[in-house]
Structure formats: C-alpha cells, structure tokens
C-alpha cells in the first residue's frame, strides 16, 4: 500500500504530538507535513515543492484561522482540489455550516479520550487509504 502525505495544520503542540503518536501507534508510516497556522500552511502549499494528498486542520488558530485558510485555499485554482478535513473541538453549528459551505471533505470532532481519538484517526486514515488520491 502506498504511503499518503498529510498536511497537519495545528497550533497546539500536544495535538501535533497526539496525531503523530496515533499514526505511529497504528503502524502507519504516512508522511506528515506540519504547519502551526493557516499562514504557514499556505506558504508550504504555495511553494508547490511537495503537495499533500490530504489536509487536516484545526479551526481556532492564531494569525490565520481555519476558515480563513479554507477561503484562501479554495480561491487557488490548483490547491482547491486537495481534500481538507476539519479536526476541531467545536461542534458549533455556525462553524460547521461555514466549513461545509467553503467545501470541506470532512468534519471531525476531537473526542475527550485519547483512545477514542486514536480510533477516529484510524478510520480517517483508513478511509483515505482506500481512496484514489490525486498526486500532484
């Protein structure tokens, strides 16, 4: 099975650690690109040296938040086709609605328990592994 590459956009260090540890624990060897906020993520993407297969992002971040990032992403004729999935603690109806309006590939709510989190991440990764993804 081919390896996927994820761009994980998250400002919380522990969350980044959680994601990495989860993948490791699950035995995945997918490549992870990291960005601390939307602005950083866009910089990485605009370089176009290495484009991820899937973007995972938080909503509340400093500088450029998740929704602002999504708006910019969807305005780029090239980058807009990369599936973006929200990973957040907010089950706010407004956030959800806005995100789907902008065009997301999924909306994952972070569960409280770490073990539940691992289970959710496993399903997400499994899902994208059975998908055909665009390799830029």
């Amino acid at each position: 099975m081919e390896n996927l590459s994820f761009l994980f956009i998250e400002d919380d260090e522990i969350e980044v650690l959680k994601f990495k540890k989860s993948l490791k624990k699950l035995g995945f060897t997918h490549r992870i690109l990291e960005a601390r906020n939307g602005e950083e993520a866009l910089e990485i993407l605009k370089k176009k040296e290495e484009l991820p297969n899937v973007i995972l992002l938080d909503l509340n971040m400093p500088k450029m938040n998740g929704l602002e990032f999504l708006k910019e992403l969807k305005e780029d004729s090239h980058l807009r086709y990369i599936p973006a999935i929200i990973v957040t603690t907010s089950n706010n109806h407004q956030d959800m609605l806005e995100s789907y309006k902008l065009g997301i590939a999924g909306y994952i709510i972070k569960p409280l328990r770490y073990e539940d989190y691992i289970k959710k991440i496993q399903r997400v990764v499994d899902y994208w592994m059975v998908n055909e993804v665009i390799n830029f």
Binding site: N60, L112, R113, Y114
Partner: peptide, 12 residues
Amino acid sequence: HDLKSPLRSINA
C-alpha cells in the same frame, strides 16, 4: 475551543 482543548491534551 479554548476550554475543551486543554482537557483533550490532559487526557492524552
């Protein structure tokens, strides 16, 4: 967000 996130971190 801000109150729930730390709880998740503590749990992890």
